[in-house]
């Protein structure tokens, strides 16, 4: 297992390097580029940039410099606000975004798996149709439609829950978490239903029934492990999607998290900030994918590297 993880880490490093290289040069070569001296840049920023990136040097040298700083975990200064660094922004936004993401994913997993498993066990009955229709609704109502609608209904009309904020008033974490998680709850419900149906039609489930096991035991011990495998493979893309979704949700609910900072930076054309955060997001997603892959291997003994066929 350890060898597998180390092997995957070994693969992640070149991927990360490619990401950094592409984004760096993309930003660097942008028309009317970010480091273009003709633009109105405050002198102190110019100074800081010079110091960090050695703008008088060749592009190759600047790139190596950036890489060097990156290796020490330094993502550089903000292009627009000279007294702030990318690291500080990430440090201030990350805890909020992670908390939001965690709630959303827990919500998505609990609701999605429950609905999917129940629907698969009662395939083609009302208990299948209702959750699956709801899942279709969830997929067709993206967060930027669902979020405002929820605010409209529960925040403005019913006045049950706060319309914005994060941790400043009671219950203000509920709507953002549901908004962010609902699409993924819908996908997970569909995927886990499909996965469970696939597994339940396998011969080894028939074997388990022929052994006289109870339905509960068949589902929990024999079917679930294989049935949720596709959900685990979906977690990689889901997490990437959640991150993108956090841009929307944090904007709608005015939550001071990474997503909102990123969008603000994009609007301000704060190139170094966007560059730094893109690299941070990419690294985060690659890491989370690695975890998902590891779980996948752990779930399926056939994928384990030390498996020996006889």
């Amino acid at each position: 297992m350890l060898r597998f993880i180390l092997g995957r880490l070994g693969q992640a490093i070149p991927v990360m390097l490619v990401v950094v290289t592409i984004t760096f040069f993309m930003v660097r070569l942008a028309p009317g580029g970010p480091f273009d001296t003709e633009r109105a840049v405050p002198p102190e920023v110019m100074e800081a940039l010079n110091e960090r990136y050695n703008l008088d040097q060749s592009m190759g040298a600047q790139y190596l410099n950036y890489l060097g700083n990156l290796l020490q975990g330094d993502l550089g200064p903000s292009f627009k606000f000279p007294n702030r660094t990318v690291n500080e922004m990430i440090a201030s936004g990350a805890p909020t975004t992670f908390e939001l993401g965690l709630y959303a994913i827990v919500f998505a997993l609990v609701i999605g798996l429950l609905a999917g498993v129940v629907a698969s066990l009662r395939a083609n009955t009302l208990q299948d149709y209702v959750p699956m229709s709801l899942a279709m609704v969830g997929i067709c109502l993206p967060s930027f439609v669902l979020g405002p609608m929820l605010v409209l209904v529960f925040g403005i009309w019913l006045e049950w829950l706060p319309v914005s904020g994060w941790g400043s008033s009671a219950g203000d974490k509920i709507l953002p978490s549901i908004t962010l998680g609902s699409t993924y709850a819908a996908y997970i419900a569909r995927i886990s239903r499909g996965g469970m149906l696939e597994v339940l039609s396998q011969d080894y489930i028939r074997t388990a029934r022929a052994k006289g096991l109870s339905t509960f035991r068949i589902v929990t011990v024999h079917a679930l492990r294989g049935g949720i495998t596709p959900v685990v493979s979906f977690m990689g893309p889901a997490i990437a999607g959640l991150l993108a979704g956090s841009f929307v949700v944090e904007t709608i609910f005015q939550i001071p998290g990474l997503g909102r900072f990123f969008i603000q930076a994009a609007f301000n054309r704060d190139y170094t900030m966007v560059l730094g955060m893109t690299i941070f997001f990419a690294g985060l997603i690659i890491l989370l994918n690695l975890i998902a892959d590891t779980v996948l291997v752990w779930l399926n003994p056939k994928l384990r590297p030390n498996a020996r066929p006889s």
Binding site: Q202, D203, Y204, R206, A210, K211, H222, N300, K302
Partner: peptide, 14 residues
């Protein structure tokens, strides 16, 4: 008790 045709698929691979 029962024994089935395909031993490849009739045992739980997990």
């Amino acid at each position: 008790s029962m024994v089935f045709q395909d031993p490849m698929t009739s045992l739980n691979p997990y």
